[in-house]
Design a protein around this nucleic acid. Structure first.
Length: 379
RNA sequence: GUGGGUGUAGCGUAGUUGGUUAACGCGCCAGAUUGUGGCUCUGGAGAUCGUGGGUUCGAGUCCCACCAUCCACC
């Protein structure tokens, strides 16, 4: 019996608590992206517990291709498979329609893909996506949508969004059917709908109103941070979030930078996810209170300080910038791992501070202070 | 010691019958990256072409000597 408990509001910012079968999610939350059932960079689920991860995010498409959702199901579902008993959100594979463009054909019934592993042809529609996510038995399943390019023509976006609505209805029906089956692993799996419409605010609003009527347990804003400016993204959020149910969590998909998150929270967003902390960590970048730092820069060659003074993450408690730089240069996995841990800790800790600020009614002030800090530049 | 080969950026190489500002990969120095392939992309710095002499309007390229290095044979 999932429900969203709204604890406090400051302006449009929401402090909430989402109750799920796998435990409570304190919001606003940043979900840690582990596409294939693992956070890249040799990060274990024990690590996730240590760095304060609330929700792990995996991908339907990737797990369907390898190892196969039926195998995960036969092993007891994704929670048991990866040894993680807290909430998991699975993305539907819809975004791969967009990100693997060139390898796909979109039709009314669904999408024909080509596997990025071995090139074989795959079909995925709303029903297939729900069946796969049911087999994975995640806490939250995302609707199978199409994410049109931010520069797509208005006419294309209109018909794409209408199809996404039809797909959402099919997702809802299929999820209800699967949740009613006696041998389904997680019979309380939750379906979140996804708003689309590129940068056309009227299409976005119409779509938000339509999908809100389906009374799903949560809603996402998709198709942002895919090429448009920050101003456009914030404007769309200003317009669209008020048209999504305020008594349900709102999830801004794929976003973003620490500044994007502060702005998103300020506009009523509860859930975030982004590959930035993990991908940039693997690529040698660290997030700090003073902006982003490239640990591969020569100036850190003899820097004995931790990445961030006072940070309680596993990297900063013990290792120097100089050592991490050396590991990155030597292409040692440990370098990546330490920065991924630092970055995810940084994001998770940022969210914790945001929640505390909301609890104490000083979010607006906190946001201003943090944004100013990020502008200062690295030490 | 004799014969042969090779010397071009930190490393590995390309460079036409001698012809503008000597090219490429890796590395180095920076920058990009938003529902993830650990990549990828974009810039930048860096070379008195082993040394010295010669031929020529002009030499990385041809000639001579020397130096270094590799291979084979004593």
């Amino acid at each position: 019996m999932a429900h969203y408990e709204l604890i406090k509001v400051e302006g449009r910012a929401k402090r909430g608590r989402f109750h799920t079968v796998h435990g409570i999610i304190e919001t606003p939350v940043f979900m840690n992206v582990g596409t294939v059932g693992a956070i890249k960079g040799a990060v274990s689920t024990e690590d996730l517990e240590e760095i304060g991860t609330q929700v792990e995010l995996s991908n339907t498409y990737h797990l369907h291709v390898r190892p196969g959702d039926k195998i995960v199901r036969s092993l007891g579902g994704l929670h048991k498979f990866m040894s993680w008993n807290r909430p998991i959100l699975t993305d539907s594979g819809g975004f791969q329609v967009f990100s693997l463009a060139g390898l796909r054909k979109i039709k009314e019934e669904g999408v024909y893909f080509q596997s990025h592993i071995d090139g074989h042809r795959i079909f995925m529609g709303p029903e297939e996506s729900m069946q796969i996510q049911s087999n994975l038995a995640s806490t939250i399943a995302m609707a199978f949508d199409e994410c049109p390019s931010s520069v797509a023509e208005r006419e294309y976006v209109e018909q794409s969004v209408d199809r996404t609505t039809r797909w959402l209805k099919r997702c809802k029906e299929e999820m209800a059917r699967l949740n009613s089956l006696p041998d389904t692993i997680n019979r309380e799996q939750l379906l979140f709908g996804i708003n689309q419409g590129a940068i056309y605010e009227d299409i976005r609003i119409r779509h938000a109103d339509e999908i809100s009527e389906l009374d799903l347990p949560g809603y996402a804003v998709g198709g942002l941070a895919v090429g448009e400016t920050h101003e456009q993204m914030y404007h769309i959020l200003d317009e669209v979030v008020p048209h999504l149910p305020q008594n349900k969590p709102t999830y801004l998909m794929g976003v973003g930078t620490p500044a994007n998150i502060l702005e998103g929270v300020d506009r009523g967003v509860d859930f975030f996810d982004c590959v930035y902390p993990s991908r940039n960590g693997r690529h040698g970048h660290a997030y700090t209170n003073h902006g982003r730092m490239n640990l591969q820069n020569a100036k850190y060659e003899q820097d004995e300080r931790p990445v961030e003074e006072g940070c309680q993450c596993p990297a900063c408690r013990r290792y120097s910038r100089a050592y991490i730089r050396h590991l990155l240069k030597a292409k040692e996995m440990l370098g990546m791992r330490l920065l991924v841990l630092h970055n995810l800790y940084f994001y998770n800790h940022l969210m914790e501070e945001i929640r505390l600020a909301l609890d104490e009614g000083r979010f607006s002030q906190y946001k201003k202070m943090r944004l100013a800090g990020f502008e200062e530049g690295e030490e």
